[in-house]
Design a protein around this nucleic acid. Sequence first.
DNA 1: CGTTTATTGTGCAACTAAACACAATAGGGG
DNA 2: CCCCTATTGTGTTTAGTTGCACAATAAACG
Lengths: 205, 205
Amino acid sequence: MAKQIPDIVIGRLPVYLRALQQMKQEGRQVTSSQELGERLGISAAQIRKDLSQFGEFGKQGTGYNIEYLANQVREILKVNRSWDVIIVGAGDIGRALAGYNGFSERGFKIRGIFDNNASLVGSKQGEFTISDSKTMKEVIQTSGIKIAMIAVPAGHAQQVADQLVEAGIRAILSYAPVNLNVPAGVRVQNIDPSIHLQRMTYYLE
Amino acid sequence: MAKQIPDIVIGRLPVYLRALQQMKQEGRQVTSSQELGERLGISAAQIRKDLSQFGEFGKQGTGYNIEYLANQVREILKVNRSWDVIIVGAGDIGRALAGYNGFSERGFKIRGIFDNNASLVGSKQGEFTISDSKTMKEVIQTSGIKIAMIAVPAGHAQQVADQLVEAGIRAILSYAPVNLNVPAGVRVQNIDPSIHLQRMTYYLE
DNA sequence: CGTTTATTGTGCAACTAAACACAATAGGGG
DNA sequence: CCCCTATTGTGTTTAGTTGCACAATAAACG
Ligand SMILES: NC(=O)c1ccc[n+]([C@@H]2O[C@H](COP(=O)([O-])OP(=O)(O)OC[C@H]3O[C@@H](n4cnc5c(N)ncnc54)[C@H](O)[C@@H]3O)[C@@H](O)[C@H]2O)c1
Ligand SMILES: NC(=O)c1ccc[n+]([C@@H]2O[C@H](COP(=O)([O-])OP(=O)(O)OC[C@H]3O[C@@H](n4cnc5c(N)ncnc54)[C@H](O)[C@@H]3O)[C@@H](O)[C@H]2O)c1
């Protein structure tokens, strides 16, 4: 069996990928671990070691071909294809996510947005029509969707997560400010701006 | 000089605090490192060790008084007071943040929302009126604001960050999908849903 | 008032992650 | 074609983090 890759390394790869995509857009062709490190505030050695877990992508003296490396990282992260994603909760955050056009170039395609508020169901939200969350399970299962974003109030998030997992979702990005409990095999990432702010106040005067 | 506390410990404290606040709301009075750990998926020993960096907050045999511990953690994180925050960019995300009522109970007060689009300036956004970003610096300086959230397009984020730092901002929460470069002494936290999603796809089939 | 139970705070050991430092070498220039 | 420079990939060292295990002790109970 191949060596187990640390979570923390996987966590950095998307950051590298984003920087590579940006360099590509700037018209650049090659870069080095040093340059990448300077941009990201990470040591060059760490970037090299992280990448070396997966193969040899660079050339001595030259560095890395940006497009090639980006494609390799996409392959490692399995975002060299497009993943279907659904959004649950069509409030301010859910609608902002539905209207965000930054997902497609990063490997994700929004497949639907669901709400349990009957007065929202059926209304247009950009290119999407808000669906009744009663139909969520069927959509997830017939389309084989594995990823969901939760944007419902905190008090409803656990219950929504339970439904999603039961329907077959295996990765959840939650905007609700609560800890979700999910069975092993299901991944959760949380986005809570208050938490991020509180991580900085400690360092302020 | 007091022992230097690792960043990674500071990063967990807001998560503990959120769980404590939730327990309090559930009417609970005491908890234990074990119970907290189970809720958060963190080992009890780690929670005890993290807290012990700052003092002795529990009682053998009994555990921790929730309200007391929450207050201690608030004090450590300096969120036992209210921090003024501004939002730059009054698009979908900026407006969602301005309308979010979850900040006040976590130690933050939105003091203004700024945009450089003349046709937005002056319009009402919930309880706020969108201000011209030309006036940002003055507001920051006269009110002594230290924290800002950036919700402008990626291509404008670095420039906005530069302006903010120059005006005196010392902590930035950025929603723009780019790496910001800021001088030492300024903290940055990033929220980018694509990054979070890409951290999970690796583990999917 | 002694015994039992629960649970803390922490020294130490084990593990994990980061940094260092250098041989190997690609490519450019003379 | 050889030397010089830049830069990789990695073995080794150093630093940082987590988990273990237990003495200390608060409270409950009989
Ligand atoms: N607005 C922000 O900037 C912001 C910031 C941080 C966190 N959050 C969090 O994100 C979540 C959403 O925030 P929001 O401002 O969009 O809230 P919102 O109240 O505007 O929207 C929530 C939506 O979820 C729907 N909903 C409720 N229960 C549901 C269920 N069981 N199934 C399906 N849909 C359901 C509601 O009908 C509503 O449309 C909340 O948990 C909030 O705390 C929001
Ligand atoms: N909408 C989402 O769900 C979402 C998700 C992830 C990331 N983001 C990111 O968050 C940021 C904001 O997203 P959005 O959807 O709200 O964008 P948006 O285009 O709706 O709004 C951006 C706002 O910023 C203003 N602006 C532009 N340059 C400015 C400047 N120099 N100073 C002040 N204001 C300026 C614009 O006038 C506009 O009102 C973007 O970087 C986007 O990539 C958004």
